[in-house]
Design a binder for these strands. Structure first.
Length: 560
RNA sequence: UGCGGAUUGGUGUAAUGGUAGCACGACUGACUCUGGCUCAGUUUGUUAGGGUUCAAAUCCUUAAUCCGCAGCCA
């Protein structure tokens, strides 16, 4: 079995395997419980991969359950987006799409049972008073004067709460546990509150809504969840989770296990901040390719495979940690290297005239689409007297080790000819505007019969045949590792990277790209991976830079 | 100062009393019609002190540091 091959288990897998072995459970059943109050981001994919991944690995099931017990924060708008993101990530909840709000009656009935068992009471204290009575981290709380109401009175009051006879905040239902508990969550937590709000699913049916701590364990129990996986901050709530499940008399009790959230440097994950970036137009929208949202990453050109692999590499533990954004980039490169077709695109064009090449001739070269996947076949690329090369691929006074084109220097045009620079023109600022060269007809296809070597091979496009394209160069959203570190009185937004987006409006790409469709991914030879943007149209191509190729030359050059 | 969690190279993560390993990064070198890929190699680590043991990242102990918790949010 695959479990046998995979010796190194994370702590959750160990728990699951023990449960399976000991017969505590016969099948693993997990759930992915997003609250529909925002877009999913890369941080959520960790929980998603673990929740769905554990079910997959052990042949069990994973439910999608929208945790929608708070009508004031949630919206249908997000439901569809979240479903789309989960499917895009490649996870399948089959027909098990649930909403916490679907269990409103059952949860309510449990609450009534709790009252009958003397485990819950209606409290008249207001928010302020409840806070005071709760005590502090170091001092115990004290009991509410309403704590010992009779069961009948509680029942009647709770019914009247449900019937809308009280206003928001007037009364709450509390679990009767222990006001002196060292764990604040056990100091008679509120389990139902009055909210006369419209709910995105249940409409105006309810004016009382259960709190997470009461609803979640019961939802898990109702769905037959075996392992309820969540993040570390819920660890303090576990005693309450267990209390609810136990007092409710659940036969096959679900258990909660916590793991550390995913943090990544050079970005932010909080919903509040992401929202602010969108609303104040620091980015174009939730799917801006610089955003760590799944829709943003998708538009940027990231693949679900690479994200899943990233999460796999990050691992599962209970330790707070910050993962390098570079690891994510590594994962995309690795995947795209194997799968993306290669094409030639010149980001910053510089015209080269090949003076000994016939004016009216066009040749076509056959080139392979992907050296990593020969089965991807070949395509033809036109060649003519005038071509564009990258501005960075020509230097008048190059440093040593510069293998590209330079005065009197020879370079190979990928898949075409050797050319030798014979001169160049500049404008009044000294900027090179045109390069003159001659080609060696004998080097057709990129090999010279006399066996002479050229160190540099550069990409190019035929000027006559090139397609215009807009290219959007994306970089890190923040210029510092931890955007939340800023001088006194400052703000995380001052850490925004001013160069996170550079638009190149007049790049040149090869004609094979004429009918590239939004979402198509390519490797622009020597430049990086690019994805056709949704703004792209035939005749007005737009490419997003997903990630650059590793650039050894940039490293050498920066060292001087 | 209460309760709960955590601490292994630059980063992330293994080793469950018996050779501190893997991945990313960095650095060499080889190869190359992508300064990509690939391949070979190098580098850096058990928070600290004490103890048990033939043997400790692992067990005991004392401390330090970091994170979370006082919503009618999830």
């Amino acid at each position: 079995m695959e479990e046998m091959e995979n010796k190194q288990l994370n702590f959750i897998e160990e728990i699951i395997e023990e449960d399976l072995k000991a017969g505590n459970v016969t099948e693993v059943h997990t759930r992915f419980p997003p609250e529909p109050n925002g877009y999913l981001h890369i941080g959520h994919t960790k929980a998603m991969c673990i929740d769905f991944g554990m079910a997959l690995k052990y042949g069990g099931k994973c439910n999608l359950r929208f945790d929608d017990t708070n009508p004031t924060k949630e919206d249908v708008e997000y439901v569809d987006a979240i479903i789309e993101d989960i499917r895009w990530m490649g996870f399948d909840f089959e027909d098990r799409l649930y909403y916490g709000s679907d269990y409103s009656d059952q949860i309510y009935n449990y609450a009534v049972e709790f009252i009958k068992k003397g485990l819950a009471y209606v409290d008249d204290l207001d928010v302020e008073q409840i806070r005071e009575y709760r005590g502090t981290l170091t001092e115990p709380g004290k009991e509410s004067p309403w704590r010992n109401r009779g069961i009948e009175e509680n029942l009647s009051l709770f019914t009247r709460m449900k019937n809308g006879e009280f206003e928001n905040g007037e009364k709450v239902l509390r679990a009767k546990i222990d006001m002196a508990s060292p764990n604040i969550n056990m100091r008679d937590p509120v389990i139902y509150r009055i909210k006369k709000e419209h709910h995105h699913r249940t409409g105006d049916t309810w004016c009382i809504y259960p709190m997470y701590d009461f609803a979640h364990p019961l939802q898990d129990a109702i769905e037959g969840i075996t392992h309820s996986l969540c993040s570390i901050e819920y660890a303090d709530h576990r005693p309450l989770y267990d209390w609810v499940v136990q007092k409710a008399g659940i036969k096959n009790q679900p258990h909660q296990y916590e793991f550390a959230r995913l943090n990544i440097n050079y970005t932010v994950m909080s919903k509040r901040k992401l929202r602010e970036l969108v609303e104040k137009n620091y980015v174009s929208d939730w799917d801006d390719p610089r955003m760590p949202t799944l829709c943003g990453l998708r538009r940027r050109g990231f693949t679900p495979e690479s994200i899943r692999n990233f999460i796999e590499l990050v691992g599962v533990s209970r330790t707070n940690s910050v993962v390098d954004w570079g690891l994510l980039e590594h994962c995309v490169r690795e995947h795209l290297n194997k799968t993306a077709d290669r094409v030639m695109g010149v980001l910053n064009p510089l015209k080269v005239v090949i003076e000994n090449y016939p004016d009216d001739l066009t040749e076509e070269f056959t080139v392979e689409n992907n050296p990593e996947m020969p089965e991807r076949g070949t395509r033809t690329v036109p060649f003519s007297r005038e071509i564009y090369i990258e501005q960075d691929d020509f230097m008048v006074n190059p440093p040593s080790k510069y293998f590209r084109l330079k005065p009197d220097g020879e370079v190979r045009l990928k898949n075409a000819y050797f050319i030798k620079c014979t001169g160049f023109e500049t404008d009044e600022t000294g900027k090179v505007t045109l390069v003159k060269a001659v080609y060696d007809p004998a080097s057709r296809g990129g090999e010279s019969p006399d066996g002479r070597k050229v160190r540099g091979t550069i990409h190019w496009v035929s000027a006559k045949h090139a397609l215009d394209a807009e290219i959007r160069l994306y970089d890190l959203l923040f210029k510092v590792e931890n955007p939340d570190e800023f001088p006194e009185g400052g703000d995380y937004k001052q850490n925004l990277n001013p160069d996170s987006l550079i638009v190149l409006p007049s790049s040149k790409v090869e004609p094979a790209l004429a009918d590239a469709k939004p979402g198509d991914r390519f490797q622009f030879l020597r430049m990086g991976y690019f994805c056709v943007d949704k703004d792209s149209k035939p005749g007005a191509l737009v490419f997003n830079k997903t990630v650059g190729l590793k650039d050894t030359w940039a490293k050498i050059a920066s060292k001087g």
